[in-house]
């Protein structure tokens, strides 16, 4: 349950934990300057703080702190079976940030990480070095996979760095998935047709209930409009769809209002997918006891929890025809459990 009173919560990042070895990194300096009122705590290794036993994810979510660190291992990881590699020869996701500034009740990070704090690996230049040998071939990198990098762009400028790197490497495709409404980074660089910005949309009622600290639907739609106007490729993800008793009055109208503002031709694709989560992550969500999403009576098969088949089919049967009113089938991607 949420804390009984929020009046004594500090601003986000009231504490900066900084690894000794990145104290002199230019990004560290810039962040310290931006958060000059925050308490600075020098640490030897980010795991000392991020992996502490006995942290309370829910309490930390109300007051997230930032850990600045040096990534020692790999930045790039091969894309998982639950994600969509879009038929590129190579698909990686880049892990330059751990944790997310946003706080979605359905987020698997809550089960993945022991902490709600954010770790920012400041040495992104090493990720580019790691990626370079692969760039003889068509390669997709999802830069926002275990986080929403755009959410903290004003702090990290990592999206801007990725966009610049992609500009210089013609086999590199980027997918930047976000709920953010801050698109400053996109305005500073020429649009690149190998970059797809994938915006996740939800009805405002679902945002209010389950996507804490995220921009409103209107703010996201405005950001999408602007990004399109600047010439960026945009994919819309109505994924995950959270099924509630109000589904019929929330989701089909979302598609209608989306296309009342944005012309269907101006988006690359629409992805529709109902909520799904690995069984082990779901178990961790349950332990947190934060949201009804964790306790829905899902069907679990092959270690994956999904809505029961009739509901999953209903979601798709309701949304697909609605989407087809605006887009041809080949521009709509759907996720449904393979039976």
């Amino acid at each position: 349950m949420n804390p009984s009173s929020l009046h004594s919560q500090p601003k986000a990042f009231s504490h900066l934990y900084i690894e000794r070895k990145v104290l002199d990194h230019p990004k560290t300096h810039a962040i310290r300057e931006k958060f000059s009122a925050s308490h600075v705590i020098i640490i030897d290794h980010y795991k000392e703080v991020f992996n502490r036993p006995n942290q309370n994810f829910a309490a930390q979510s109300q007051s997230k702190n930032l850990i600045l660190a040096h990534k020692e291992g790999k930045f790039l990881h091969i894309g998982s079976q639950y994600s969509d590699g879009f038929d590129h020869k190579q698909f990686f996701y880049a892990s330059s940030v751990m944790g997310c500034l946003y706080d979605c009740d359905y987020c698997y990070l809550q089960g993945l990480y022991p902490s709600a704090n954010t770790v920012l690996f400041v040495n992104l230049e090493d990720a580019f070095q790691e990626l370079t040998p692969y760039l003889d071939h068509d390669t997709l990198v999802a830069t926002s996979y275990d986080t929403d990098t755009m959410a903290i762009e004003s702090l990290t400028h990592q999206t801007a760095q990725w966009l610049k790197f992609a500009e210089e490497h013609t086999n590199l495709h980027l997918e930047i998935r976000t709920k953010s409404a801050n698109i400053k980074a996109l305005k500073k660089i020429a649009p690149n047709e190998r970059v797809t910005l994938a915006w996740t949309l939800s009805p405002q009622h679902i945002i209010d209930k389950y996507e804490h600290a995220t921009p409103t639907l209107q703010q996201r739609l405005k950001a999408i409009q602007e990004a399109i106007a600047f010439g960026w490729k945009v994919r819309i993800c109505i994924d995950p769809v959270i099924y509630t008793e109000d589904f019929d009055v929330l989701y089909p109208p979302l598609i209608e209002s989306l296309f009342s503002i944005i012309t269907p031709e101006s988006i690359e694709q629409l992805t529709l997918g109902s909520f799904r989560l690995s069984q082990s992550h779901l178990r961790s969500l349950k332990k947190l006891r934060r949201s009804d999403i964790a306790f829905y009576p899902y069907t679990v098969r092959d270690e994956m929890a999904t809505y029961p088949e009739p509901i999953e089919s209903y979601i798709l049967k309701s949304l697909l025809p609605k989407a087809l009113q605006y887009l041809p089938r080949e521009r709509i991607r759907t996720w449904q459990r393979q039976s």
């Binding site: 004594s8 504490h15 640490i43 309490a59």
Partner: peptide, 17 residues
């Protein structure tokens, strides 16, 4: 915000103003 006990470091969480 940090207790240094030999080579052990402990960090209580200060989540309030």
């Amino acid at each position: 915000h940090k207790i240094i006990d030999g080579n052990k470091h402990y960090y209580p969480d200060i989540l309030y103003t």
